[in-house]
Design a protein around this nucleic acid. Structure first.
Length: 279
DNA sequence: AGACAGGGGAGTG
DNA sequence: CACTCCCCTGTC
């Protein structure tokens, strides 16, 4: 029934649960994942990843297994902070999401916690997406752009001021246009995404990094900012512009991977226990 | 009760 | 460029 793939280093749990991706559920160590119209299950024992309902080539694409983490580390391991993050979370990998699903997820994200984003996306799929199943599990596919329309279904998502962003995104862009952004230079692709209502720098960078292969994108949220101030600037509250310059100079073309590791570290760091406000 | 949030947008200096 | 207020909802 199930197939097996040997991967090292790799942590299924960290990669799925770190907050980059929202469409999974976990039961007793087995994860059911939905992405790009697929539904499949996964579990890991040591360096063995077991899977059902999907083929190997999709998993290689999804978890970016064709790219060498060792090479990534060589590039971003440039200081003791990120070095320690890599040491601690060695198997954490960037996930290559579906661009449309990724954009919508991050349109929902503003001022919301990770569990809440997951919940909103789940309701959106449940009310507007097609029903699918995997064994006994019933899931719902992600709605296509044209399927997100003002309705009581959408109201049920509880998206509030974000709801019009979702509808407009569906009207203004389709899957092909999103994918086509891959061929643009980073800054231009970002500018294009930011033309959409509800898409600022942060949401644009998340979409670019998590689904469109722009590994230089470094999503700058308030947690990352606070972490950078604390760990790299002795608590000095640098402006966002200065932080952006620092990040691209310091971490280089794979800065997005550094962001993934730093975010994960700082999320679990006592220093970050209480959200920002003052420095 | 009331403040506040892992962000965006419009407006201000 | 930096800062402020509001946006809808849920939570502390």
């Amino acid at each position: 029934m199930s197939s097996r793939l040997r991967i090292h280093p790799f942590s299924l749990k960290e990669s799925l649960e770190c907050g980059q991706f929202f469409r999974f559920t976990e039961v007793d160590g087995t994860y059911i994942v939905q992405s790009s119209g697929r539904i499949f299950s996964l579990w890991q024992k040591g360096d063995d990843l077991f899977y059902e309902g999907v083929d190997e080539s999709f998993l290689v694409h999804f978890f970016r297994l064709d790219e060498s983490l060792a090479d990534v580390f060589k590039e971003i391991d440039r200081d003791p902070i990120v070095h320690e993050a890599i040491r601690q979370y060695r198997g954490l990998r960037l996930i290559r999401q579906d661009p449309w699903e990724c954009l919508v997820s991050y349109l929902c994200s503003s001022a919301k916690s990770i569990p809440h984003i997951r919940c909103m996306v789940e309701i959106l799929c449940k009310t507007s997406g097609r029903k699918v199943s995997l064994g006994n599990y019933i899931g719902y596919e992600f709605p296509e752009p044209a399927c997100i329309v003002p309705s009581h279904h959408l109201d049920a998502v509880g998206a509030g001021f974000r709801a019009p962003y979702l509808v407009q995104a569906g009207q203004c862009i389709d899957r092909d246009q999103l994918t086509a952004l891959k061929s643009l230079p980073y800054q231009e692709a970002k500018r294009e995404l930011m033309k959409l209502a509800g898409v600022g720098k942060k949401v644009a960078d998340c979409t670019l990094l998590y689904s469109l292969d722009f590994l230089e994108a470094f999503p700058m949220d308030t947690w990352i900012k606070k972490g950078l101030w604390h760990s790299y600037f002795k608590g000095r509250r640098m402006g966002e512009k200065e932080l952006e310059e620092f990040v691209s100079d310091h971490f280089g073309p794979l800065a997005g991977y550094a962001q993934l590791y730093l975010f994960h570290t700082w999320r679990h760091h006592p220093m970050m226990a209480r959200p920002p406000r003052q420095g």
